[in-house]
């Protein structure tokens, strides 16, 4: 055999050829079946230990009492309706609601963590996607595009706790004499009356949502801008020649073409908002009817020290998020398949 240099590779290659001629299955194929698992193993181990095990444990704890020493059924209160082993879920789902009348239920629903989470989802997802899309479209047409985008993206670099503190100052409601809050300072300068932004129901929830929008718009913008850039200029020009105004080009051509990306951004944002905790925790601690599901989980767990109830809220939250994660993955797979 004319092998110029007997390098380790060629030697191994020859060995493989020799082996494969003897064995029915070539060595390289056996290796193909096993080796990937070997490389995956560390990741699988870590993930099992830190994700799968805690998840199973959480589900287990959600069926037990406040310190995990007995079944949740033992926490039932005499004379009140009881869901047995699901008592923590009974609490997690119904405790915030006043079921005495339909009207009372309606009212209590919208001040509960569930109602607030829905407000968050609707306003924040719409807000971030709308602003993101708007900024992306406009930034595409300005001279210093990178700079404009960087400025809008900047809040993403601030931690949520930091952002919460900053905006707490902006919204600050001082005394009648001195207003150190920026927003109230502006209002009083123009002769207005200062507003207690974070404790006035129902505007307080929306004031916190606004901070969320401020932070996340840049994220949406970045992803949507990338999608917009991938729309070929010629298609837009074709539409203009075809008789479309800029407005029509945007709504009838650009938006439909990037719709798959918009969907991904929307579902991603829904997941983000469902998990949102820090802003509410820092700015109001969930008081003044601003509670959300994730903050409630924290409150039950680390303020009330009720492990059973805390984990039950956590499980409810996970179950709410799963459909959106499913949607996101499905979308992603479809996109990959279309490629």
């Amino acid at each position: 055999m004319a092998v110029p240099q007997n390098t380790p590779e060629t030697a191994a290659h020859i060995k493989r050829i020799k082996k494969s001629s003897a064995a029915p299955t070539p060595q390289i194929m056996k290796q193909g079946a096993l080796t990937p698992w070997l490389y995956l193993l560390p990741a699988l181990l870590v993930m099992s230990f830190f994700i799968v095990y805690p998840m199973i444990n959480t589900i287990g704890l959600s069926f037990q009492n406040r310190d995990g020493t007995a079944s949740a059924a033992t926490t039932c209160v005499e004379g009140q309706s009881c869901w047995g082993i699901f008592e923590n879920y009974h609490y997690a789902i119904t405790a915030e609601f006043n079921t005495s009348s339909l009207q009372a239920f309606w009212k209590s629903f919208w001040s509960s963590s569930y109602g607030n989470t829905i407000k968050w989802i609707v306003v924040m997802v719409f807000g971030t996607v709308a602003f993101g899309l708007g900024f992306a479209t406009l930034a595409d047409r300005v001279k210093y595009e990178a700079l404009a985008k960087a400025i809008i993206f900047m809040p993403m670099a601030i931690s949520f706790v930091g952002a919460g503190v900053i905006w707490k100052f902006v919204y600050d409601y001082g005394t009648q004499q001195s207003q150190i809050g920026l927003l109230n300072a502006i209002i009083t300068t123009f002769g207005g009356k200062p507003v207690a932004w974070l404790s006035t129901i129902p505007i307080n929830t929306f004031m916190i949502v606004l901070v969320g929008i401020w932070i996340w718009s840049g994220f949406c913008m970045t992803i949507l801008a990338a999608a917009l850039k991938s729309v070929p200029d010629e298609i837009l020009e074709a539409a203009r020649v075809d008789g479309a105004t800029e407005w029509t080009v945007f709504w009838k051509i650009m938006v439909p073409i990037i719709l798959p990306t918009i969907t991904v951004v929307v579902t991603t944002m829904v997941i983000n908002v469902l998990k949102l905790f820090d802003l509410v925790y820092v700015m109001t601690g969930g008081n003044f009817q601003t509670d959300v599901i994730a903050n409630r989980m924290y409150t039950e767990m680390y303020k009330n020290f009720n492990v059973g109830r805390g984990t039950a809220v956590a499980v409810v939250l996970v179950l709410t998020i799963i459909p959106f994660i499913y949607l996101n993955i499905k979308r992603f797979m479809e996109q990959e398949a279309a490629r």
Partner: peptide
């Protein structure tokens, strides 16, 4: 504006609207 010039254009890349 292009839309008011009453012209039609055929592009090198065809520039068809992919979603329609």
């Amino acid at each position: 504006a292009p839309k008011d010039r009453d012209i039609a254009m055929v592009f090198q890349s065809y520039a068809l609207y992919p979603h329609l």
